[in-house]
Design a protein around this nucleic acid. Sequence first.
RNA 1: GCCCGGAUGGUGGAAUUGGUAGACACGCAGGACUUAAAAUCCUGUGGCCAUUGCGGCCGUGUGGGUUCAAGUCCCACUCCGGGUACCA
Length: 927
Amino acid sequence: MDYNFREIEKKWQKYWQENDTYKVDVDSEKPKFYVLDMFPYPSGAGLHVGHPLGYIASDIYSRYKRMKGFNVLHPMGYDAYGLPAEQYAIQTGQHPAITTEKNIKRYREQLDKIGFSYDWSREVRTCDPKYYHWTQWAFLQMFGHYYDKATQKAEPIEKLIAAFEANGSADINAAGTEEFEFTATEWKAMSEKDQQNVLMNFRMAYLADTMVNWCPALGTVLANDEVKEGLSVRGGHPVEQKNMKQWLLRVSAYAPRLLDGLDTVDWSDSLKEVQRNWIGRSEGAEMKFCVKDSDVEMDIFTTRADTVFGVTFMVLAPESELVQQLTTSEQKEAVDAYLEETKKRTERERLTEVKRVSGVFSGSYAVNPLTKEEIPIWISDYVLAGYGTGAIMAVPGHDSRDFAFAKHFNLPIIQVVVPSGEEATDPATWEDSKDSKEGVMINSGFLNGMNVPDAIEKTKEYINEENIGKVKVNYRLRDAIFSRQRYWGEPFPIYFKDGVAYPLTEDQLPLELPEIDKYLPTESGEPPLGRAKEWKTKDGYPLELSTMPGFAGSSAYYLRYMDPKNDEELVSEEANSYWQDVDLYIGGTEHATGHLVYSRFWNKFLFDLKKVCKDEPFRKLVNQGMIQGRSNFVYRVKGTNQFVSLNLRKEYDTTPIHVDVNMVSNDILDTEAFKNWNPEYKDAEFVLEDGKYICGWAVEKMSKSMFNVVNPDVIVEDYGADTLRLYEMFLGPLEAHKPWDTNGIDGVHKFLRKLWRLFYDASGNVNVSDEKATAEELKTLHKTIKKVEDDILRFSFNTSVSAFMICVNELSSLKCNKKEVLEGFIGILAPFAPHICEELWKVLGNEGSITEAEFPVLNEDYLKENNFTYPVSFNGKMRFKLELPVDMDRAEIEKTVLENEASQRWLDGKTPKKVIIVPKKIINVVI
RNA sequence: GCCCGGAUGGUGGAAUUGGUAGACACGCAGGACUUAAAAUCCUGUGGCCAUUGCGGCCGUGUGGGUUCAAGUCCCACUCCGGGUACCA
């Protein structure tokens, strides 16, 4: 019988489904292991071969762990809310729920064909009311809590109210947007509305004014991605910066804990580094600068307090509240014009266009608190309102952006730090600022002669003593904007009474997404939910019109998988205390700063509420690389319908044209398929080389427009799921970005057929022997067990595939058909290629599924070697090999080597200076 | 600009802790089997020189350095990919 992968794969997929092979439950008898994939957004295009890369890796690991005796939780679901479905709905009127359902069905079919070991009974969908019930619930908890900096955790808002009633704001140490001061009496005298406004300032989920990209023509808010050069990508309408009330999550309150938690998780150093940079802790000083002829004070934050003698001007962010107060009447016109100009630029543009220097003088002067000098206050968009205090002291001598600004506007530059190994020079001659943190202070009064770190310390002390500021730790992590003016997302369980936001009670959850007539904003510019009929509480109060963003549903899905059908709570204590946290999380790096920060925040919040038992949700995290597309080209002779093969094209004047990679095999074009591809090419003529049309190629993004999208079902149809699984792993290291190239897939498929032939004879009959295996056969098997297990544990699946190939090649050469060896081999291969191994497991006479078998145990005894073949080098160059007993001592090795005939040739009569012997590694003779 | 990756044959890649560079596979070339094809098997395959044999020299993006020994460590640079919130 031949290796009939189509039949085998269908048969075992059916078996697994009928026998609930992958269903898991809490089982206190077994240790748990939780393997999670980042769940996909079910797009209309279906899965391409890039998606399963991480899923295959995690599946191999899950199956391995299961064979090692663990109770493995390995679930899958869908991140089902998202813009594409809504965009499609706007264009076609088709309800996003319908397209989403359709896409999910297609995804499921594709996933099922690859043979994953998911427990589908635990599937979650973020758009299912039974699921988003708990997203809304978590939001209500955030609304009802604040962050207490004293206890370093979330506390009920009632605790804050009690404190206000007892002592006013006096004892409060809570994370808030603004600072308040009031007495208990004043608090009690406040109106309900004023009290609620104060509380809003402290809630973990709160409403506040934020700058957004507002597109008046589309009546909607746009993401940075959707804006290019001040115009909307869709439609090309003008976009402006607009202040709007939005819900935010106080992620910044958790910045210190999000930073510290990174030390406890097993993630790559680069990923941790990216998160650390994102959280961005910086120690510095907040300083007060008085404004001349005014009682206005400017607070600025700086990490380089030591350079305060080099300050020659101040800069305000255009959005700063101080701008209006500090603009003089003479400058008003110029400032207004500038503000109007910056309104058109998105934050992204302000960030990338570093070389474009712009700004305007406010007309006011500040007084340097140390030198008492008067310095001009400018306004420029290189200072952002959202970070620090929205105002800076500019030190053009030692900050490159300040330097560029000073040069552009002809402002003075003073050198206050002389970098180590340099002399003081005239700043007028400089090409750039001297940002170094090493050097000696000059022109700096009492700091003169100190090195930079000492000067920073000294200045901080001085600032404290003189009461002109305070030492402060600043984080760049911002609160997350949590509302979207969209339809296809979770509704907020919030209603408004007299303009004040109030929460729905928990028994009113889930608040279901209403039906609307069109998926567009209302005529008056309200979000789509403004179209919903009866979108109000039963008492007639209007409900919130925004919906939640994509990351709402994905922030706690890993908890829901633990107990997906629970209608009473997000996750039961029993399920949570058994499954605890994700042991292995596999997904793309693109989530390094978004999802992975938000879900850690979300988890820590729930941890504070004692709803979950672990402070960090993802113990180990592996990033799979992106699979890029490999495009193919044909070369059309200009002005004709003639196509020239790759290596002949230089003789013609040609245009390269993308051709669908599915019509190309090993870069050879199926010319008939090409003719039928497009009516335009029906009469195409070909100039062939060696009777073939060879295509050119390039690595590009995998996309429809490049015709380089490869669909996994096509590969499964042609080669089988086991081949696809092995080939995706064989392609290269899991973490590396690599192009998809079907050219090598035959090798992997051939390997499986070769394996099959170890079990069957030439006439197709099972031919397996019960004889005792030879030492050589056992050595081959056990060296493979060792290598593969080692590789699985370090996620080096590409090298395990070659180890499998080497093993089968060796067993084929040995003509080994011993059951003992073959059974061991399919045991280690089963996590990678489960279908063929299930079948062969049965061929060997076993009952049931190989997933229940134990992973083969390594026996080191079979690997013992008496001799080692040493590479012998002379001056580091390998010259010949010499087999020596492993127990030979150094002196004897040296003697044997030097006496060797080949050595005599290389020594050429000289005495070696040194002989380096590394046992079981190398011998190097230094002459 | 800043942050994080990466660069090894014609191609994907291997070399896990500084110790035989190119495992494994694709492709290519030659051969066996076959009426033929497919399938399968065997041999060769980094470059240059020599090829009568032993072989020799060069070689992991570029230029330096450390070391008995460097793809691997250090310094400087080039190019490519990804992220990005000018974070003072």
